[in-house]
């Protein structure tokens, strides 16, 4: 059942998108109470291509930048214990500030657009990746490090050949959480005009059109699941000794 009130409201905010829909011949697409309209979806699925690519670009750039910074910080703080609490607190603040507020806090400095989106999302991932890397390195048994030192490995060799490989499960676990949450949060970059799948939820007329919201949501969650599985596979491939132990 179409609520006349909602349709009028949608007509006011909506641009060509809504008009295009309401002038269509299919009845279900004009009803805001209709959860999903297959016919409309089949015909319009190609309009999700560009936003999906934008979304992906923003997420990948953010996570890669976040990873490089957080990983670097973790390695730097690994042998300097006194730096760990302040770094945890600093990344914690960046993690706690809601992204949507963070976007606008940066507005006077970096303005609208993709740069702001990437800075905020990268800052958000820092805490997750930093904490897991530190945790992974701390979980390496002292006996293993002693054995490596006994074999004549230098500190640098111990870090890259012993500690980091053993910390991979925790590091990738952090990366998985960071990627999945960033994919979901990146829908909010629509508020600073940075595109992405959020445009298909909040863009003109979409807010009162459940089909579009459901499609965008499905793409976001599918993307998150896909990346989660890819990272899980990567973790298995890079830690073969774990499988041996289980067998």
């Amino acid at each position: 059942m179409a609520s006349p009130l909602l349709l009028t409201a949608a007509g006011e905010v909506g641009g060509d998108f809504f008009r295009e829909r309401s002038s269509g011949t299919l009845p279900c697409q004009a009803q805001s109470s209709h959860l999903f309209c297959w016919d409309w979806a089949k015909e319009n699925i190609d309009r999700y291509g560009t936003p999906t690519v934008q979304h992906l670009e923003i997420v990948l750039l953010s996570v890669v930048i976040g990873f490089v910074v957080a990983f670097g910080l973790a390695l730097f703080a690994h042998r300097r214990r006194q730096l760990q609490p302040p770094l945890l607190a600093a990344t914690g603040i960046l993690y706690t500030i809601p992204s949507i507020a963070f976007f606008f806090l940066l507005l006077p400095i970096t303005g609208f657009g993709r740069d702001t989106a990437i800075i905020v999302l990268a800052a958000y991932t820092l805490q997750i990746i930093y904490r897991n890397t530190i945790l992974g390195l701390a979980n390496v048994p002292a006996s293993v490090k002693d054995a490596a030192r006994g074999m004549g490995l230098t500190n640098r060799q111990i870090l890259w050949q012993v500690e980091l490989p053993l910390a991979i499960p925790e590091i990738i676990a952090g990366l998985r959480v960071a990627v999945v949450s960033t994919i979901a949060i990146a829908t909010l970059v629509v508020f600073i005009n940075a595109g992405g799948l959020g445009t298909q939820i909040y863009g003109s007329g979409n807010l009162t059109f459940p089909t579009s919201i459901v499609i965008a949501m499905a793409i976001v969650m599918g993307m998150a699941l896909l990346f989660d599985l890819v990272l899980l596979t990567l973790q298995r491939l890079t830690t073969p000794w774990r499988r041996v132990r289980q067998a």
Binding site: A184, L188, I201, N206, M217
Partner: peptide, 13 residues
């Protein structure tokens, strides 16, 4: 995992 993947904006909308 599914909970983290839910886009907040879509839920509210």
């Amino acid at each position: 995992t599914a909970g983290r993947a839910i886009p907040e904006l879509a839920v509210i909308a």
